[in-house]
Design a protein around this nucleic acid. Structure first.
Lengths: 219, 219
DNA sequence: TTGAAAAGTTGACGGCTCGTCATGGTCTTG
DNA sequence: CAAGACCATGACGAGCCGTCAACTTTTCAA
């Protein structure tokens, strides 16, 4: 056993010309797809558009991805995989409801704000209609959130509530408020997080007042 | 002038063979489209699928709708137009935050539950990914909600909060919780409304306990 | 009643996308 | 160095898209 480990261990060669090109092609296609989705929106984009944004032949595309859906999922999944561990960690170390909730929202909104290009390419659409696609990886993120809530109940963080509904409520607020936040001139993740956290901790009555005191101008 | 009004008033004939067929064809196409979207999901459906589910020729379809998007919007808009007045009325007559919030959620969840076929055809999708499309009519519903919140602030129902974010939060919770509700064996709109209302009125701590009191077993 | 114009339907058509696959070039391995 | 594994290529048949000239039905004025 020792010898096998010490020696070159032939089957696991990380480089090799062939292997390199493959990685490279995959990356070329992914980058092209990101650009096309950002420009045309998911609905209007075609596989051909992506191929055209690439020096490769059409058949090559299908060696890497089965369809437009699949490459789109790959892109979304990169995002989901990047943020899920952060969210999870934030929730694990929470000692109070406050920490659980505010940690989740702060992390999420900050991520979205720092990642606006991907977010736009995911939400943007050519015409007026808005399309939202939840890939399996995103849905897995939802499941993690529900699990974390369920785990937190015996820890005394939450009352024994309907974890499924609470998960849905948190996700709904996170996505929808993020959307509004990103439409503003200067997206402010901290403010969004404060808003969402206050809502979940104390309801509407606990929400902070609006920025502009509109009473001033109309004496 | 009097004569013109008393006599048949030729230009406004509500029936007329031509007019009738037009209405009828439109309805045939809309019904076919509903069926196709329900069966294949929005993404997989093609205009040709809809035409095939119809006794009409392909060119005729385009006399009524420009594209798949447009006919889909027409279907969604029927739904949005049906529920929006009810929601608005519910909010107008609200005298307290409680009434504003619970009226909104109750009406929405009851509508969704009573309308499950349309809801499924709108949310359903062939593969694992979920697609949500908000047509202009739906977005107009969001705007109405925000307006109603803004109007309610001077009435003293709400503190002077960020109406845009609150609108987003309510919409997010409504859609996401409705989705979870409809996945259960016996969708219970009243329970969903109680949950959402309590959340917005008092935050997580105000939420009602889960069905099974898990505290009992662990004294 | 009649006939001409308006309105609407039809289905074939050119242009495009789709996913496949036989061909051929390049890397790897013994 | 040779044989084979691996994969890029691009042409291809199938099918979808939206259009439009030709045709049919309805309307309406004389």
């Amino acid at each position: 056993m020792e010898a096998a480990l010490a020696k070159p261990a032939l089957p696991r060669a990380p480089s090799g010309k062939r292997e390199q090109t493959k990685l490279q092609n995959r990356q070329i296609i992914l980058d092209a797809a990101r650009g096309v989705f950002a420009e045309l929106g998911y609905g209007a984009a075609t596989v051909r558009d992506i191929i055209r944004a690439t020096p490769l032949a059409s058949g090559t595309f299908y060696n890497y991805f089965k369809s437009k859906e699949e490459i789109y999922q790959a892109i979304r999944d990169e995002v989901a995989l990047a943020i899920r561990p952060r969210l999870r960690e934030e929730r694990m170390k929470a000692r109070t409801v406050e920490e659980f909730i505010s940690g989740t929202f702060r992390t999420f909104f900050e991520f979205v704000a720092s990642d606006r290009i991907d977010f736009r390419s995911i939400r943007h659409n050519a015409d007026i209609t808005r399309v939202r696609v939840d890939t399996p990886e995103v849905i897995a993120g939802f499941d993690e959130l529900r699990e974390d809530i369920e785990t937190a109940i015996p820890r005394g963080l939450f009352p024994p509530i309907d974890a499924d509904f609470l998960m849905a409520a948190i996700a709904g607020v996170a996505f929808e408020v993020a959307e509004r936040m990103m439409r503003r001139e200067a997206p402010d993740p901290a403010a969004a997080a404060v808003f969402a956290t206050a809502l979940f901790l104390g309801g509407i009555r606990a929400l902070p007042g609006a920025p502009e005191p509109s009473t001033e101008t109309r004496i």
